[in-house]
Amino acid sequence: MSLTRQDVEKIAHLARLAITEQEMPVYVDSLSSIVAFVDQLSKADTGLVAPMAHPLAGQTQRLRPDEVTETDRHEKYQANAAAVQAGLYLVPRVIE
């Protein structure tokens, strides 16, 4: 199956990606060919096979003791941020 421009615009919005006018047809094209390629999975007979989410079957989640191990390093961590004020990360105003 192939994707329409509208499909790609919807996906790009969900993924929060700005796609330029020039890029758009390229993505419609390549995403369509990728989807067509993976469509061959539909032919596989998976019957009652359970989906696999993790390569090591039988492994279960390890639990961490409830201990505070972290200290305040916000200055070091915020050195990578483009916009910070009074310890807060800044984004364009969000109204609700």
Binding site: L3, D7, V8, I11, A12, L14, A15, L17, I19, Y27, S30, L31, I34, V35, V38, L41, S42, A44, T46, V49, A50, P51, M52, A53
Partner: peptide, 28 residues
């Protein structure tokens, strides 16, 4: 960007079972 969009598509409503879930079954 292409892979993010591919992944967003195969997880999105209406396609999850046909792609993501199916692929995890084949992986099994």
């Amino acid at each position: 960007k292409r892979r993010i969009m591919t992944g967003t598509y195969v997880l999105s409503a209406g396609y999850f079972d046909a792609y993501y879930l199916k692929a995890q079954k084949v992986r099994q």
